[in-house]
Design a protein around this nucleic acid. Structure first.
Ligand SMILES: [Mn+2]
Ligand SMILES: [Mn+2]
Ligand SMILES: [Mn+2]
Ligand SMILES: [Mn+2]
Lengths: 217, 217
DNA sequence: TAATATTTTTAGTTTTGCCTAAAAATTTAA
DNA sequence: TTAAATTTTTAGGCAAAACTAAAAATATTA
């Protein structure tokens, strides 16, 4: 498989979770920053290789084979992100771009030894689950911060938006995975939330609250 | 730079050391397992980018810019090889292929942090020197085993041929970097050498002796 | 339901990196 | 020094992965 084919598979995999009745050509184009016509070309190729089920105008689905391949790329991506943060001292907002390249290195031994070296981590630096060598994913209960009731104290366990801008905003506010947050007040009008972190008070917008995954104790 | 351009630069760099009066088109084609006509195409492109000095029919030279780029790719390659052996438990005959892919990951921070993580190694698992971040290479005195006089004891510090076949032959004979070898007898007729390793006796061909780098004590 | 808007596909190009076959230049050998 | 062999370049093509523009299908809305 080429790097391009792998990138398409991965995007279709991520989009499948959101739109289970077939992934749209335009949605794929948007994620890959390419044109719809290029996507159509690639869907034909992936279909020939039996990595996707594709009927024109009807959206696309991953086959089992396609899904397993996609999971392995996600596995590579997330393991490399762990490596970069844990071993090479990268910040969580610096790893994505490099992992986008590293994920395409093709070597079973490499990735399985890396997994072992990292002590078989279950989650990446953004709190996303890492598929194991069989493609199995350990999902855990998580809620958005926006769903938490006033006066509850929760722990930050992941981010929904993994953009550099959002991650750097969190850095500035001293919010990272493991940070304990107490919900003090919720403003019904605009969804703004007042929270307490390390005994300092902070007001965050609904957009922030809708992109932070937390777990109750 | 593309992966293909990088591979050409690296090959020209390695061949330059052997033929300092210009690298031949055919030699490059041989190393890259491609055709001479493809090499000519690429030489024009590299010349446009001022990475090589090229005049047709006259062989090719790296410019300073080209040489520095080539050294950085070699640096990447060799650092990744150290990582694979030291951290992931690869054998020295298993690393080359994967390093061929890893060397093209483009990130200054990645490679410099990897260098630090590995404790700034000077040599790779095959005894080849690793250029530092400035492109400087620490060369050390070495001789071929074939050049060593009878009765001298020396230490194996590198291999000239890094092919899987040769490395696996050395594995079988329990020869690795650091192995002490005593030269017992040299056969003038065919260059065969009788040596002692860990108090066991072994006869090796001239081909082997011409591909093992050693240092005297 | 018919008209309009949106999405998707097709048709035709471009660029990169490779190929084969043939021509040109250089090297080797008689 | 000319003829033959070898090396290198040119010319013309191909496949992958992108693009633009136009056509076709589907979805929306009046
Ligand atoms: Mn990422
Ligand atoms: Mn991640
Ligand atoms: Mn190597
Ligand atoms: Mn090496």
């Amino acid at each position: 498989m080429t790097t391009s084919e792998e990138n398409y598979l991965k995007v279709i995999y991520h989009l499948s979770n959101l739109s289970p009745k077939g992934v749209n050509t335009n949605a794929i184009a948007g994620m890959l920053d390419t044109k719809a016509s290029s996507v159509t070309d690639m869907l034909k190729k992936l279909s020939d290789k039996e990595l996707v089920d594709y009927q024109k105008y009807q959206g696309v689905f991953l086959t089992e084979k396609g899904k397993l391949n996609a999971k392995m790329i996600v596995r590579n991506h997330r393991l490399w992100e762990v490596f970069l943060v844990e071993k090479l001292g990268f910040a969580w907002d610096e790893v994505h771009e490099v992992a986008e390249e590293l994920e395409h290195i093709r070597s079973e031994k490499l990735i399985n030894q890396l997994d072992k070296f990292l002590n078989y981590p279950s989650f990446d630096p953004h709190g996303d689950p890492i598929p194991n060598a069989k493609g199995e994913i350990q999902n855990i209960d998580k809620q958005l911060l926006s769903e938490i009731d006033v006066n509850k104290t929760i722990t930050c366990i992941g981010v929904k938006d993994t953009s550099v801008d959002f991650l750097q905003y969190l850095n500035k506010q001293q919010i990272s995975l493991g940070t304990k947050i107490k919900v003090l007040e919720k403003e019904a009008f605009d969804g703004t939330i007042k929270i307490e972190i390390n005994s300092s008070i902070l007001v965050i917008s609904d957009k922030i609250a809708n992109n932070l995954y937390v777990k109750t104790h």
